[in-house]
Design a binder for these strands. Structure first.
Length: 415
RNA sequence: GUGGGUGUCGUCAAGCGGUUAAGACCCUGGGUUGUGGCUCCAGUAUACGUGAGUUCGAAUCUCACCACCCACCCCA
């Protein structure tokens, strides 16, 4: 038997309705805020991610599905933003006027070890808003996510926000942090020693008790924001208050993708095991320029669909699957079977969902089949009915049965 | 890459050194030669992850491997 590659998951027929439900809701929500869909390829030049996400990040260093073909290095997208930015620049979409507002639904690929809420192929809802430095853009994006999460029936997800500053204040902070940690540098765990130069902010996230102890009392990013960044963060909080979005300031949020500046936020849930983030995003004011576009600020988020579904499952927020069949037509005997097929065709042309048994089973089995698939009605056509020009129409819910003229069946179904 | 846990019919699940390896669900057929959901009866399955070892005897003990799950790391 050939099995599915590790880290991949089938969405089986039993679950596809859940996907359709959240997808439709996401589209509606995004459009409510004036975002339109953009679709970019699953494959991009490796360089796009190396430069966009940052080549010191874990994602780029060890998690990408990269392959060579015709001497080009290509990579399956590990996140959604870089591709949208590339398309924005390449197609000169900035010429259409700003702000540019896009949403997308896309698979992403990261070669990671599996665990709860974590797959190698996963799917994201994404939002990107380009062109505005105003914190209202951030507030809009966050409100959209909040609105969406509420509309799917989740109210126990919490919003955490932080500001990780701009290039300038981050450099200041970085220095301060390194100065603070330097005396204990040799006592840090091995991974943190490596982080000291490349990304000292990550050390604050380390779970090792020794590192935690050392990091205690370390300077906080929020205290090193320059005037502009500090004001921006205050603005954001005010706007969220006006919009009525509850949040918690969490100085611990350090996005693992290098392009983030200023605003960083996460929607977290305690129903996901170790992976608590269902939606993560923030501002990236330098990314578009770094990838070769005009200097244009941006803000957006990615929302994990599998994780969303996990939480919804845990909260019982998933919709029940709707019955997929209006009527099953059962014909008995050659002549009647022909009539049954004709009737089936007619009803389908009228838009009805009609099922006919392709297993050539007996009548009793066909009734069981009708019951299993949730058919509302069963129409029986045998020699008796044929002679009278009627069908025996059984209402499966009411367990009642009537004879209906063959050409009136559709009317009865319509009520 | 590093830990921990689990592997018995399609699914759930007993069994813990000697059994024809239970049971339930599902599926199929039947209880009126044309009627479901409930009930009754019957039927179907190459089920002990793989490979070695211990033993008179292993699903049960040992070891290795594999797979899956969970956790670290990182992220959606």
């Amino acid at each position: 038997m050939i099995s599915i590659p590790k880290g991949m998951k089938d969405v089986l027929p039993a679950d596809s309705a859940k996907w359709q439900f959240v997808e439709e809701l996401f589209r509606k929500t995004a459009e409510k805020y004036g975002f339109t869909e953009i679709r970019t390829p699953m494959v991009e030049h490796t360089e796009l991610f190396a430069r966009g996400i940052g080549d010191t990040t874990d994602v780029v260093q060890k998690e990408m599905y990269t392959f060579e073909i015709s001497e080009r290095s290509l990579t399956l997208k590990p996140e959604g933003t870089a591709g949208v930015v590339r398309s924005f620049i390449e197609n000169k979409l900035y010429a259409e006027g700003l702000p540019a507002k896009y949403y997308y639904i896309t698979p992403c690929y990261r070669y990671e070890k599996m665990q709860k809420g974590r797959q190698r192929e996963f799917h994201q809802f994404g939002i990107e808003l380009f062109g505005s430095s105003n914190m209202l853009a951030d507030a809009e994006v966050i409100l959209l996510a909040y609105d969406f999460l509420k509309s799917v029936g989740l109210d126990d997800v919490k919003l955490h926000i932080n500001s990780i500053g701009c290039k300038n204040c981050r450099a200041e902070y970085r220095k301060a942090l390194q100065d603070f940690l330097r005396p204990d540098l040799d006592k840090l765990c091995d991974t943190c020693k490596g982080r000291f130069d490349k990304n000292p902010m990550r050390i604050l996230d380390c779970k090792s008790p020794e590192c935690k102890r050392i990091a205690e009392g370390a300077p906080r990013m929020l205290d090193y924001l320059d005037d502009e960044c500090r004001k921006a963060f205050e603005d954001l909080k005010k706007l969220l208050d006006i919009y009525g979005v509850p949040y918690e300031v969490d100085p611990g949020i350090v996005r693992g993708l290098d392009y983030y500046t200023k605003t960083a936020f996460e929607f977290v849930s305690d129903k996901l095991g170790a992976q608590s983030t269902v939606c993560g995003g923030g501002r990236y004011d330098d990314l578009i320029e770094e990838l070769g576009g005009p200097a244009t600020p941006g803000v957006g988020f990615g929302l994990g669909i599998e994780r969303l579904l996990l939480i919804m499952e845990a909260c019982g927020a998933l919709p029940q699957k709707a019955p997929g069949c209006d009527i099953l037509v059962a014909g008995l005997g050659e002549a009647a079977k022909t009539k049954a097929l004709e009737l089936t065709k007619q009803m389908r042309d009228a838009g009805k969902r009609v099922i006919i048994d392709v297993m050539d089973r007996g009548l009793k089995a066909q009734f069981k089949y009708a019951d299993r698939i949730g058919a509302r009605y069963v129409a029986v056509i045998g020699d008796d009915e044929l002679a009278k020009g009627v069908v025996s129409l059984r209402d499966m819910e009411k367990s009642s049965q009537t004879e209906v003229p063959a050409d009136k069946v559709i009317e009865v179904l319509n009520g």
